[in-house]
């Protein structure tokens, strides 16, 4: 297949007689459609984009003195494997949609396209669930400082004490429902409550066994942080009471369970916790999976638009290009899954 190329006359200098004439030259075109060429050019930039992200992660991870184990940050390997399976299935359905469109089976193509869309949405749903599990455990990057501390040291101990101090003056409107008293409704704007005191004095019957255990730990922590002239080991005890590092296999489904700390029983306390290497982990995890999720979302938009067309041979080129993009998104996840969940 050749594309005609128009070349302008080169001989401006001398040949007046040629002025105004256009020489037509035929140059061989590339053996692929322009849309596909542009898609491949775009994908080659995407290779570098994700290689830089993934490469930075690997370099950061292996250059770090400590990196959290997947269960320390509540990663669920089975969920990650399930998402890998979902994306592989969606790659197959988009290939089948293209084949059906080429064979002029338009309604079949539409079914496969719809299946791709649903699988992509399922992937994003699982991802959102995983993100939620991280947020619930206080794992997210945050400036100037999130809840994650790198070491059980004096800085950590004083951060816990600062947080406890703040909890002595909580605006009435922000008091957790479980700790509200009937009198709170009469509070004037600006009135504050010592929620620590209320937690201390909460009647035995109002707390379940897990919360009961957490309250005991919480009273211990309060006592310990009174005096910060302490050993690193004592800070480790505080950290363990607030949010113990889950042991292997304890992360379980969706990263829930495993933790029996104060933060797990009373998430609204939001006490600082210790996950060695956790901050860098959170930054890289959310950056990598976030950019990948954005790509998935863009793919879903493309598929939604495509569903509005007749998916026959005439539009097979569009499906092929969308499919190329989608396979690339799948490809990125093929590397992200082992590197993030299993390394």
């Amino acid at each position: 297949m050749s594309a005609p190329a128009i070349s302008a006359p080169h001989d401006h200098g001398h040949g007046d007689g040629h002025h105004g004439h256009i020489h037509l030259q035929y140059q061989p075109g590339l053996p692929l459609s322009r849309g596909k060429l542009i898609m491949w050019l775009f994908l080659s930039t995407e290779i570098m984009f994700f290689a830089a992200l993934l490469g930075s992660y690997i370099v950061l991870r292996f250059g770090a003195a400590v990196w959290p184990k997947p269960h320390h940050v509540h990663l669920s390997e089975p969920l990650g494997a399930f998402n890998t399976f979902v994306l592989i299935c969606s790659s197959v359905t988009v290939v089948l949609a293209l084949e059906a469109a080429k064979a002029n089976k338009t309604s079949l193509a539409k079914i496969w396209m719809l299946a791709t869309l649903l699988l992509g949405a399922l992937f994003l749903g699982v991802k959102a669930y995983e993100y939620q599990a991280k947020f619930a455990h206080g794992i997210f990057p945050q400036a100037p400082h999130g809840l994650i501390y790198e070491r059980p040291d004096l800085y950590y101990g004083s951060a816990v004490r600062d947080r406890l101090d703040n909890l002595r003056k909580v605006p009435v409107s922000q008091v957790p429902a479980a700790l509200r008293l009937p009198d709170d409704t009469k509070a004037k704007p600006g009135d504050t409550v010592d929620v620590l005191k209320r937690l201390d004095e909460a009647p035995e019957g109002s707390l379940n066994a897990e919360q009961q255990r957490a309250r005991t730990a919480f009273q211990l922590v309060q006592k310990m942080v009174m005096n910060l002239d302490q050993q690193a080991y004592d800070m480790a005890v505080i950290a363990d009471q607030v949010a113990p590092l889950p042991s292997e296999g304890a992360a379980g489904a969706a990263g829930h369970g495993g933790g029996h700390g104060i933060n797990d029983a009373f998430p609204w306390l939001r006490l600082p916790m210790v996950i060695p290497g956790g901050n860098m982990w959170a930054s890289t995890y959310f950056l990598l999976t976030g950019f990948h999720a954005v790509h998935v979302a863009v793919g879903l938009i493309v598929f939604t638009v495509l569903l509005g067309y007749t998916l026959g041979p005439k539009n097979a080129g569009m499906i092929e290009n969308a499919g190329l993009y989608w396979h690339f998104v799948d490809l990125v996840w093929i590397f992200l899954f082992p590197v993030l969940y299993l390394f």
Binding site: V66, E150, R151, A236, L245
Partner: peptide, 27 residues
């Protein structure tokens, strides 16, 4: 990748070390 071969005193104070993980496990 080699950022931890030579670290400043300030960074050494704040960065996590394998010993911290052991300490947490001990606790």
């Amino acid at each position: 990748g080699m950022r931890n071969r030579m670290v400043s005193q300030e960074r050494a104070i704040h960065m996590a070390r394998p010993a911290d993980v052991l300490l947490l496990q001990k606790a």
